[in-house]
Write a protein that binds this DNA or RNA. Structure first.
Lengths: 182, 182
DNA sequence: ACCTGAACACCGTTCAAGT
DNA sequence: ACCTGAACACCGTTCAAGT
């Protein structure tokens, strides 16, 4: 019984707002996510939200950070190339399930920091595959752009993404062997 | 002297609307491009525009088609791989100069048809490089996604795009030699 | 001291009233 | 017959008035 008692009219909080906003985004997309709709869903006046968030932009950032934090962990494949491939395919699938968040993540200046574990896992795997740090960093940036390019906009294709991902890794890692000794 | 005489108050047309709209988009971005702003720039009532366009969405489509039609022609390099690379680098530069159009092109269902010559040039070059038609078509789709992914959103890098483009072409064309005889 | 209704300055689009 | 002012149903955000 976690229903609020009759003497406890409402307890608005940032996390309640984020949850309500995410519900709208998941159900009806980003365009339907208006401040007024969130307030209506929570049974509050629209002005009340501004006690807990500074503006709509910040709210979108919070939502995108949540989705980014739920990006999949590293795959278990012993081959680092396949480890990268599988983690990014899983990332593709995750973002495909939350398409509304892709646009926010793409504009975000510092938001990919919420996807820090994906970045770190990728850099580690690419290093294990013998790629120098600067090329690994560039590859990681490019994978991110490739993923967002595939997931946003019309006619997304998981197959095309996998194909591009594989060929890009082939091109980058080339004939590079997984050398166990330095 | 092409100033309108005093007895000729206005002659609104679709192309006048598109020109005015593009001016606003180039100067202040897509967010500033409102139907009312276009009307104000033309000295008309906002309702009058709807005699020549069906809605804002259609207007955006017309603008994006214009930008797509101005994508650069094929480069002159004798090596098909370099021909593809240089045409897509030029396409990157063109779209970078008209960033506001990238988003519209990305959503567009049929709009890439306005970029038909880029598609055709690329398919021809990839065929000349020995790629079978289905792989060439996939490569072309992926290049488009890669370009839009790079150009939209934060921190675009021409260098990263070139790097990804080159490595992708390497991965796709592999050791494939340019065979002159079937 | 805290909350929020009503207002402000915008949107895209429609339609009845004007010429 | 053609054009368009004013209205409608929305926005995000602010602030003065209410408890």
């Amino acid at each position: 019984m976690n229903s609020s008692g009759p003497g406890r009219p409402r307890a608005l909080s940032r996390s309640l707002i984020v949850t309500a906003a995410r519900g709208i985004a998941e159900e009806e997309g980003l365009a339907a996510l208006t401040v007024r709709r969130v307030a209506r869903r929570l049974g509050t006046g629209q002005a009340s939200l501004y006690r807990h968030i500074t503006d709509r932009e910040q709210l979108l950032g919070l939502l995108a950070a949540e989705v980014a934090a739920q990006l999949p962990p590293a795959a278990a494949d012993p081959d680092p190339r396949q480890r990268v491939r599988h983690q990014w395919l899983a990332a593709h699938d995750h973002l495909s399930r939350h398409l509304w968040a892709a646009g926010i993540l793409a504009e975000g200046t510092h938001l990919p920091s919420a996807a820090a574990h994906l970045t770190e896992d990728t850099l580690a795997a690419l290093a294990a595959a013998g790629l120098p740090p600067d090329e690994a960093a560039r590859t990681q940036r490019v994978l991110w752009k490739l993923l967002l390019g595939h997931v946003r906009g019309a006619r997304p294709s998981r197959f095309d993404f996998d194909w591009a991902l594989s060929h890009l890794l082939d091109g980058v890692l080339g004939g590079r062997a997984v050398t166990l000794a330095g």
